[in-house]
C-alpha cells in the first residue's frame, strides 16, 4: 500500500449529493476476479457518452484537470452498494484523497483499507475550497503529518482518526495485526461458544 504523508496535486470539484457506488463504478466493470483494470470504469457513464467518447464538460476530462489527485465531493458520497471496486477504481485512477462533508459508512471503511484518505469538513469550511475548485483548477497540498490542507489563499486543519492516520502513513497489514491477537480470539471463542453450543455446530 502506498504510504500517505504529504501529497500535492489538482483537486476537482464534484459537488452533487449522494454520488453512489453504482455511479462511481458501474456494474459492467464488476465482472473480474482480481482488482485490476478499474481505472477505466471510474465514473464511466459520467466520463463517456453512449458512443464511448469522452464528455468534454465532465470535470475529470478537462485538460487543466489532468492527473487530478483529489476530489472535492458533496454529502453522503459513496452511498449504496458495498462494492470495494469503487475505491479500487479511484486509487487506480490516481486519486489519493477525497474532501467532503460526509461519506457513507461502508465506503469509508473500504477507503481506509486501501490507503484512500477521506477528509470530512463542516459544510462552511468546505465551501471556500469547493468554490475555488469550481472557479478553476485548484492546486492543493494535504499534509497528513500535521493534518493540514494548504492551498493558495487558505490553510485548513482537519481531524482524522489517529489509528487511521497511523495506518495510512505506515501502510500496515491489518490482518496480520489482528492475528497477533489470535490467542485472545480463541479464548473469547471458547467462552462464547461454550455458552452457545448450537453455534459451534454447523
Amino acid at each position: 500500500m502506498t504510504v500517505f504523508e504529504v501529497v500535492d496535486g489538482i483537486a476537482a470539484a464534484m459537488p452533487a449529493a449522494n454520488i453512489d457506488t453504482d455511479v462511481i463504478m458501474p456494474k459492467v466493470f464488476l465482472k473480474g476476479i482480481d482488482r485490476s483494470g478499474l481505472a477505466a470504469g471510474l465514473f464511466h457513464d459520467l466520463r463517456f457518452d453512449d458512443q464511448g467518447r469522452p464528455r468534454p464538460d465532465f470535470v475529470l476530462n478537462r485538460p487543466d484537470h489532468a492527473g487530478a489527485r483529489f476530489l472535492l465531493v458533496g454529502p453522503n458520497f459513496g452511498c449504496g452498494s458495498s462494492r470495494e471496486h469503487a475505491v479500487w477504481g479511484l486509487r487506480q485512477f490516481g486519486i489519493r484523497a477525497l474532501i467532503g462533508t460526509s461519506f457513507a459508512g461502508i465506503f469509508a471503511d473500504n477507503a481506509a483499507n486501501n490507503g484512500l484518505l477521506l477528509v470530512s469538513l463542516a459544510p462552511d469550511r468546505l465551501m471556500p475550497l469547493m468554490a475555488a475548485a469550481e472557479a478553476g483548477p485548484l492546486s492543493l497540498e494535504i499534509d497528513l503529518t500535521d493534518q493540514h490542507i494548504r492551498y493558495p489563499g487558505g490553510d485548513l486543519h482537519f481531524e482524522v482518526d489517529e489509528r487511521l492516520r497511523h495506518s495510512l502513513m505506515s501502510g500496515l497489514d491489518r490482518i496480520g495485526e489482528t492475528l497477533t491477537h489470535a490467542e485472545r480470539i480463541r479464548a473469547f471463542e471458547r467462552d462464547y461458544l461454550g455458552e452457545r453450543p448450537w453455534l459451534a455446530e454447523r
Binding site: 471503511d109 473500504n110 491489518r174 490482518i175
Partner: peptide, 13 residues
C-alpha cells in the same frame, strides 16, 4: 455490509 478487504479479514480472523 463490508467491502472485500474486510471479507478477507473476517475469513482469516
Amino acid at each position: 455490509g463490508i467491502g472485500t478487504s474486510d471479507i478477507e479479514h473476517l475469513l482469516a480472523t
